[in-house]
Simulated assay, not measured.
Amino acid sequence: MKMLLMVEFPHEPFNAHVRSGKIGEIMNRVLETIKPEATYFTEQDGMRSGIFLIDIEDPSEIPGYAEPFFLNFQANCKFRVVMSAQNLQDAGLEELGKAWG
């Protein structure tokens, strides 16, 4: 199942990792571990943020994605299920509309 993993990094300890010169090493290790299909970094509500497209087969995999961010950055992680355009076409919206509209 495709999911967006949205991560908000608190200023600390992120700033400390930047100052120590270890941010690249830590972030590379995390990305090599979670192997996202796509990675974007941005700002969200005044905080550094990352958006990662991941593919999980079982909910038991979620801690493996979240813990590297929790333990290294004390980050907040949010998981959102996403659909492709094809997934939306396959959802049967017309039939749902007839049944529930």
Score class of each variant (00 low, 15 high):
Gly46His: 06
Phe9Pro: 02
Asp45Thr: 12
Gly46Ile: 00
Gly92His: 08
Glu43Phe: 10
Ser84Trp: 03
Thr33Glu: 08
Gly50Trp: 03
Val30Glu: 06
Glu32His: 11
Leu71Phe: 14
Pro59Ile: 15
Met47Asp: 00
Phe14Ile: 12
Pro59Tyr: 12
Ser49Gly: 14
Glu67Asn: 15
Glu61Gly: 05
Leu31Arg: 10
Ser60Ile: 15
Pro13Asn: 13
Glu25Arg: 04
Glu61Val: 03
Lys22Cys: 07
Glu12Cys: 03
Lys35Thr: 13
Thr39Pro: 03
Ala91Cys: 05
Pro63Tyr: 10
Pro10Asp: 07
Leu93Lys: 08
Ser60Asp: 15
Met1Asn: 02
Asn87Gln: 15
Arg29Lys: 14
Glu95Lys: 15
Met3Ile: 14
Cys77Thr: 15
Asp58Val: 01
Leu88Lys: 07
Ile23Trp: 08
Ala38Asn: 07
Phe70Glu: 08
Phe14Ser: 08
Gly97Leu: 10
Arg48Cys: 01
Leu96Val: 06
Ile23Cys: 04
Asn76Gly: 15
Glu95Cys: 01
Phe69Asp: 05
Glu43Arg: 07
Ala91Lys: 09
Gly64Pro: 08
Ser49Cys: 08
Gly64Asp: 12
Met1Thr: 02
Leu71Gly: 14
Asp90Tyr: 01
Glu25Val: 11
Met83Leu: 09
His11Ser: 12
Phe73Tyr: 14
Leu53Trp: 03
Phe52His: 04
Gly21Arg: 05
Pro13Glu: 07
Phe73Asn: 06
Arg80Asp: 01
Arg29Ala: 13
His17Lys: 08
Asn87His: 13
Gln44Leu: 12
Gly46Lys: 04
Met83Ala: 13
Arg80Glu: 11
Gly97Trp: 03
Glu32Asn: 09
Glu67Gln: 15
Phe70Tyr: 14
Trp100Pro: 00
Asn15Lys: 13
Phe69Trp: 07
Gly64Tyr: 06
Lys22Ala: 11
Glu43Pro: 01
Ile26Leu: 11
Tyr65Met: 02
Arg19Gln: 15
Thr33Pro: 00
Leu4Phe: 06
Phe9Cys: 03
Gly46Asn: 01
Phe52Trp: 04
Gly24Met: 02
Lys78Met: 09
Ala85Val: 12
His11Pro: 10
Ile34Asn: 09
Glu57Asn: 14
Phe69Lys: 01
Gly50Cys: 06
Met1Asp: 00
Ser60Tyr: 12
Met83Asn: 10
Lys78Cys: 14
Thr33Tyr: 08
Gly24Gln: 11
Tyr40Gln: 06
Ile51Val: 11
